[in-house]
Simulated scan of single mutants.
Amino acid sequence: MRLTHIGGPTLLVEVAGWRLLTDPTFDPPGRRYAFGWGTSSRKLIGPAVQPADLPDVDAVLLTHDHHADNLDDAGRAYLPSVPVVVTTASGAARLGGTARGVRPGESTVLEAPGRPALTVTATPARHGPPLSRPVAGDVVGFALRWDDGSLWVSGDTVLFRGLREVAERLHVDTAVLHLGGVRFPVTGPLRYSMTGRQAVRLCGVLDARTVVPVHVDGWSHFAQDRAGVERDLARAPADVRRRFRWLPVGRAVELEPA
């Protein structure tokens, strides 16, 4: 498995002859984006790789389409160049075209000659506190499985019972966790994505050999950056700490098979 962290939640995943891209965000930094209900955020860091410099991508895994830190204008313009976009059912209805909508627990299969079939299963995510779904919208994670490997992308989510239950059932080689501890001034202390402390608790029931944090910095609404996550990790059990791996931005990294 080869992973290239492009920035934010955007990751190029190369496995078994497939190239997948998560949550494409390619806008330059500087602009402020509205997220609805009085919330907004400024993009602080641009992508390490431009769309024109990417190899041909077979599918986009889009955890949700309605927040610009997961799909910005340049990312949206990129989608028609990709054969398949897998996203939420509501997002697929908005995007149309080649988008395939999946609800938590539902699967779709990517197939191509000469390559093993790749099963993509949507996993539950809750992008905020209890009862926030009508405001924060639908989000999913993705569990990928192929002949001899597996990967889980959490999507933007806080730690909640549904996520713990998925982690207890999943047997994956690598987990990609969206962190950042998102907060907005208008909603005070409420969190809209996981903190490092929550990630540590999740890893207590998750058997992934490697845990890759992403979506930790680059936006003004992230309340916990890498340094904050690392402070939480420093207090974690040793077996959890050694599983975490920070990827260099813009450079491909080979992960050894289990």
Rank of each mutant, 00 (worst) to 15 (best):
P237N: 08
T98V: 09
V186N: 00
V253C: 05
P130N: 06
V60G: 01
F244L: 05
G180W: 03
E254I: 13
H221W: 09
E256L: 14
L206V: 02
G38F: 00
P113H: 11
L255C: 01
D53I: 08
S193G: 08
L233S: 03
F222I: 07
V214S: 03
R209K: 12
D239G: 08
S193I: 02
L144A: 03
V102P: 00
D217R: 15
A122C: 14
T25N: 09
R103P: 01
I6A: 12
G228C: 10
G30I: 00
S132Q: 13
R242P: 12
A227T: 10
L179N: 00
L62A: 02
V109N: 14
Q50N: 14
P47K: 04
V158R: 07
P113D: 13
P124Y: 06
V85N: 03
V158W: 04
T108K: 11
P189H: 08
L61A: 05
L255I: 06
A92H: 02
S193A: 13
A223P: 02
F35Q: 01
P130I: 05
A234Y: 07
L3E: 06
R197P: 06
P134F: 01
R251K: 14
V135L: 03
V158K: 04
L159A: 06
F184T: 02
R251V: 15
G181P: 02
T187C: 05
R242G: 13
P113K: 10
V15L: 14
V153K: 10
H67M: 12
T187D: 06
G204S: 02
W18Q: 02
W152A: 04
F184I: 02
V139I: 10
V205H: 11
T4L: 13
S81N: 07
A125Q: 02
A77K: 15
R19P: 05
G228S: 10
R161G: 14
L54K: 05
R2Y: 13
Q50C: 14
D27I: 03
P237A: 05
S40C: 04
A234G: 09
R245Q: 12
L12W: 07
W146T: 00
N70Q: 15
P51S: 09
P104T: 11
D148C: 12
D73Q: 15
R161I: 11
T22V: 12
G188D: 03
V211W: 06
S41Q: 03
P257G: 02
L71Y: 01
R245W: 11
R100V: 15
V13E: 06
T87R: 00
A112E: 07
H67I: 08
M194H: 08
L11Q: 07
V216Q: 14
P83I: 06
R226L: 11
G97W: 13
R191L: 06
G196M: 09
P189C: 05
R197M: 10
L163F: 13
W246K: 09
M194D: 08
P28C: 12
R241M: 11
T88A: 00
T210D: 14
P104D: 10
P47C: 05
H215M: 04
R76L: 10
V60I: 07
L61E: 03
S40P: 01
A59R: 04
V214N: 05
S90K: 12
C203H: 12
L151A: 09
R2Q: 15
R241T: 11
G137R: 00
D148H: 15
V13T: 10
E254P: 11
T108W: 13
D138W: 00
L12R: 04
A34Y: 11
F26M: 04
P51W: 07
E168F: 14
F26E: 04
D148K: 15
